[in-house]
């Protein structure tokens, strides 16, 4: 099922609405958001998706992460490699 989400990239100037499948992983969601904002924000190598202030597991799916239609999701990108992607985010 398609799930529209309000998404915000740190460093960007507006919120955009991305459509994802409820079975998509959080890692795929991150890629979709980063691509949608790419004309304003340069993609980073480290990506962290947050909802309600909590980091989401990149291996989780949109539905298992509890995201529902028109929830707010934030994407933080960094060019610096920090902790392993499996713990805090994901690498591009």
């Amino acid at each position: 099922m398609l799930v529209p989400l309000y998404t915000f990239v740190k460093g960007d100037t507006l919120g955009i609405v991305v459509l994802v499948q409820d079975g998509d992983t959080i890692a795929a969601l991150a890629e979709t958001i980063a691509d949608a904002a790419s004309m304003r924000v340069a993609p980073g190598s480290e990506m962290t998706v947050l909802a309600g202030g909590k980091r989401l597991d990149p291996r989780a799916t949109v539905s298992s992460a509890g995201l529902t239609m028109l929830d707010r999701v934030d994407l933080v990108m960094s060019s610096e490699r920090a902790a392993p992607a499996s713990q805090v985010g994901m690498s591009r």
Binding site: Y6, F8, K10, G11, D12, T13, L14, G15, I16, V17, V18, A36, A37, M39, R40
Partner: peptide
């Protein structure tokens, strides 16, 4: 140029551009 739909505020109907880029 963006191709993805943008979000709009349910009151002012303008794009969701409150706050700062941070």
């Amino acid at each position: 140029h963006g191709a993805t739909p943008v979000g709009f505020c349910d009151l002012c109907q303008l794009v969701l551009s409150g706050g700062t880029p941070e």
